[in-house]
């Protein structure tokens, strides 16, 4: 569907239009953001700062990859934020309790806590999947409901107080650890990107996510067990989210019920800015990762430029809407170029 670029036959405007259609809005936004922030702050384009951005972005990128699966099937997951909170609280409570009872079994406590936290978060996806795939509850209501449940459970378990007492080992490895000067979370992200790539490009399940979001009826007639794969999409979304949740807990060194509030919006924004269709059926993994990095860059750049965090929320909201507007525009340009 991409036509060869005929240089010289038409003007510069035409060529930039073609680039716009082929690449989407994201590369343009990235370039503009880099230029703006580089001019606002001399520290922005330093290697150390960019490594910082990479680490800070890890959590959002992992959640956004999960969110992408829900979006591909034509739904979305609003419970990712509170899922992170629940994962964090459950993981931290297991770790601190085990280590209190058996001060020598630090490694065991960390492993059990991480597994327990991720299991709790993934279980939220099981509930979402059953509600959406079996009982056909709209994803909007289902995930809004489980978000409330997760938040309520996390608050009840902690009485709203952060959970302390986790072994230092946990934070030292998974929060602040570095290998060859690259932070641990970046390795985790890289591994998950590979997993996601294989899933989407080389497995039937990945292909079916695209298919059932693109046309559910056609998928049924093609003999696909659509309920099972819809269910799996939400389970995997929650699994990715829970991994991000446990990594974030390591960074914060506490179990918190009040984290992740901005994740639903930010993760959907990363996907949409990366060109994932809200109607389901289309979206590229690389674009989603770059979408998350873009949001990370914006937040980091605004921090460096001393823009206060409340105002940053406004900027993210504006960018999300602009990205959708730009995508609509792109569809129109696409039609015109085809003519």
């Amino acid at each position: 569907m991409t036509e060869p670029i005929r240089i010289g036959s038409r003007g510069l405007g035409f060529r930039s239009q073609q680039l716009f259609v082929q690449l989407g809005v994201l590369p343009f936004l990235l370039v503009v953001a880099m230029m703006v922030f580089a001019s606002l702050s001399g520290n922005f384009l330093t290697g150390q700062n960019l490594l910082n951005v990479a680490r800070q972005t890890t959590y959002l990128a992992i959640v956004a990859m999960g969110q992408m699966l829900a979006l591909l099937t034509g739904g979305f997951d609003l419970s990712v934020g509170k899922n992170v909170a629940l994962t964090s609280v459950v993981g931290a409570m297991i770790m601190s309790n085990v280590v209190r009872g058996h001060p020598d079994a630090v490694g065991f406590a960390v492993a059990l806590g991480m597994l327990g936290g991720v299991a709790a978060g993934t279980f939220v996806g099981v509930i979402n999947g059953i509600g959406i795939a079996v009982f056909e509850v709209p994803p909007f209501m289902m995930t809004l409901g489980t978000a409330s449940i997760c938040f309520g459970l996390a608050l009840t378990m902690t009485s709203g107080v952060p959970v302390y007492g986790m072994p230092d080992l946990f934070g030292n490895i998974f929060g602040f650890g570095r290998l060859l000067n690259v932070p641990t979370p970046v390795y985790v992200l890289a591994a998950l990107i590979v997993v996601m790539y294989v899933l989407l490009a080389w497995t039937r399940m990945g292909r079916y996510f695209y298919a059932l979001g693109g046309n559910l009826r056609a998928s049924i007639l093609s003999g696909i067990s659509t309920r099972f794969y819809l269910f799996m999409a939400y389970v995997l979304t929650a699994l990715f989210t829970a991994i991000a949740g446990i990594m974030l807990t390591a960074r914060l060194e506490t179990g918190e019920a009040n984290i992740g509030a901005s994740l639903p919006l930010d993760s959907i924004a990363a996907c949409v800015i990366g060109g994932v269709s809200l109607r389901g059926g289309t979206g590229r993994l690389s674009s989603v990762v770059f979408g998350a990095i873009f949001i990370g860059l914006i937040q980091n750049g605004m921090d460096l430029a001393h823009i206060q965090s409340y105002l940053q929320e406004v900027v993210i909201g504006v960018l999300l809407i602009l990205a959708v507007v730009a995508d609509q525009l792109r569809q129109r340009v696409l039609l015109r170029l085809k003519d």
């Binding site: 298919a211 046309n215 056609a218 998928s219 007639l221």
Partner: peptide, 21 residues
């Protein structure tokens, strides 16, 4: 449109959809 094809996907993916196993 309604039941036959996944419109936003490629010809290749549509043809193969029932037979990926």
């Amino acid at each position: 449109r309604a039941e036959g094809l996944v419109m936003p996907r490629s010809v290749r993916e549509n043809m193969a959809l029932p037979w990926l196993e």
